[in-house]
Amino acid sequence: MALVKPYLDVPGTTIFDADQARLGYHLNQFCMSLMKADNRARFKRDERAYLDEWPMSEEQKLAVLARDLNRCIALGGNIYFLAKIGATDGKSFQQMAGSMTGMSEAEYRDMMINGGRSIVGNRYVGEKR
């Protein structure tokens, strides 16, 4: 019998559950490796060569190279792990979060200052606003 996943109809949201964690295991462990300064330096020197040391899928590697965080998450990445790439690039959490919304950095920051993204219309996929 399949597991119950009541969170699949939440819009714009991927829950990092056991299946996602399995899919993204090597991607996330690669991210963890960036907590060491030596590894950050090696990654920066030749990103592709560093990624090739990990048994990640080609799709995952391309998503990391493109810094496409939405794609990374779809492929099993988790934001707290992916944040290590952001730290390596000198990006803040707000810059990383904003990059997934299709908004500019300034637009996202202003949205937050003005109270954040409204819950209205954002509870269910396909919900009318």
């Binding site: 979060a97 919304t101 993204r117 409204s118």
Partner: peptide, 10 residues
Amino acid sequence: QLQGPRAGLI
């Protein structure tokens, strides 16, 4: 929410 197109939800 820190991830995905719904990031920034309050």
